[in-house]
Each structure stands twice: as structure tokens, then as C-alpha cells.
Amino acid sequence: MFIGHFAVGFASKAAVPKTSLGTLFLASQFVDLLWPTLLLLGIERVRIVPGITRVTPLDFESYPISHSLLAVTGWALLVALVYQAAQRYPRGACVLGAIVVSHWFLDLVVHRPDLPLVPGGSVRVGMDLWASLAGTFIVEMGLFAVGVALYLKKTVAQDAVGRWGLWALVVFLVGIYLSNLFGPPPPSVAAIAWVGQSQWLLVLWGYWVDRHRVVTPSW
């Protein structure tokens, strides 16, 4: 899953209006921001196998540090503790931790049975929505539409950056998603890892846009 994780980031602004969209993106994509570095270091492994699913050609051979349920829970706790220490916003810390864990459960829906429960464990799970291109598209785009709608309901643009910067971000995310669905397989594992690192730019984009929008008052 890709765009569905960003949907969670957008939607969560309604729950924690004092937390920047960039931070919410960071939490929602935390394990996928960690994973490319572990690939480059050779700690985790993936193969490119065209046709292995209808949606992605990736065979996730080993990713216990970034994507096992136990490890993700640990990363969630770390993110929550660091945020609480920095911002003194308990609600935000709790929501960020929950967002990090949500990544695993959203992946559970789409992945083949390749998600480990614990590092080194033999049990792997996945509901394999990626077996259906149409099903995957409907679920992810539906989540994304709801997430963006909730963000728009909770915030209003202060200026052109807040308005058009947001819509450019939305269009860019959809464009990446469509290219992943319908484009050719990646040329190499190294290319996957380096492109994955570029997701940090999306986090920065979230911070930039959010600084040019204000939270609408609650009545």
C-alpha cells in the first residue's frame, strides 16, 4: 500500500490539529522510510518478480526490522516518546504511535502472506488484496479521498501556497500511485531503495503546505 498510508496522515489532522501534516506523514510512512535504508545496507531483502501479484512485482523476502508487527509496535512507541518529549502533546504522541502501527495493518490487507509477526518468526500473514488490481485501486483511492476530505474540512488555506501547494501534493501522490500501478517494474533493488528515500521530500512537502493552512475552529 502507498497512497492509503498518506490517507491516514491527512485524516489524522482532524484528531490532532496541533500536529503538522509533515509529522503525520512521517508517522504514516515511518516503516517505509526505514525500509529503503535497510535495503541499501543489505539488512533486509526484496526481489523483483514480475507477475507475482497483479499490483506489485516485489517479493518481500525478509523485512523483520521494518515490517514485523512486534518491531513496528516498538517503532511506534519510539515515535510517540520522541514526539512527547519534543512537543509535550500527549494526545499527539498517542495518535502518532497509532498511525505508525496502522501502517502494518493496512499492509496486512494488501500484502501476500509475507508480513512477519515477530523478527525471526516463521508465521507470515497477509490478505493479498494485491491479487486484484481493481480491488486495490478502489480501496486505496477510497481511503485517500476520505483522508484528503477530512484534512480539507479541518484546515483552510491562508494563501496560494496553502491552496495550490496542497492540490499539487494531492495530484503528485496520485500520479506516483498510478505510475506504480501501471508502469514497468523497477530496474533494480537499488533503484527501489533510492526512490524510497525520496519519500522524505513528501514529508517536507507536508510541513510546507501545513504551515500555509490554519485549523478551522470547532464549535
Rank of each mutant, 00 (worst) to 15 (best):
A86W: 12
V82Q: 06
W130S: 00
P36A: 07
L21F: 04
W205V: 02
D159Y: 08
L173C: 07
G42S: 11
W200N: 03
A149P: 00
V46K: 03
K13T: 09
F2L: 11
W219L: 15
T19A: 04
L129M: 12
M1I: 10
T53Q: 02
H103L: 10
A11S: 02
F60W: 14
K13Q: 09
H111R: 02
S198N: 11
V79I: 12
I52Q: 05
Q84I: 03
P57S: 11
V125K: 05
S198Y: 10
T136S: 14
T23E: 09
T23K: 05
L169S: 08
V118A: 13
V8D: 01
V110G: 01
K18E: 11
V109W: 11
R112E: 13
Q84L: 12
E44V: 09
T19K: 05
V100Y: 00
G22P: 07
Y89I: 14
Y83I: 06
D114R: 08
P36S: 10
L77Q: 08
A14M: 11
W75M: 01
Y89G: 13
M127Y: 13
T37C: 14
G183T: 10
V139D: 04
W200Y: 14
V171N: 14
A15G: 10
P116T: 00
I43L: 07
V49R: 04
I52H: 04
A15R: 13
G206M: 01
L202M: 11
Q197D: 11
H111Y: 02
I48M: 02
H5F: 02
S20W: 04
A191N: 13
F172G: 12
L24Q: 05
G92K: 00
F25R: 04
Q197H: 14
F182S: 09
Y63A: 14
A76W: 00
S188L: 02
F137C: 14
G162Q: 00
A134R: 15
Y63S: 03
F10S: 04
T216M: 15
A168Q: 08
E140V: 07
I138G: 14
V79W: 05
H67R: 06
F172M: 11
G42Q: 08
V101N: 05
A85L: 13
A168M: 13
I3K: 01
W75S: 05
F144C: 02
F6Q: 01
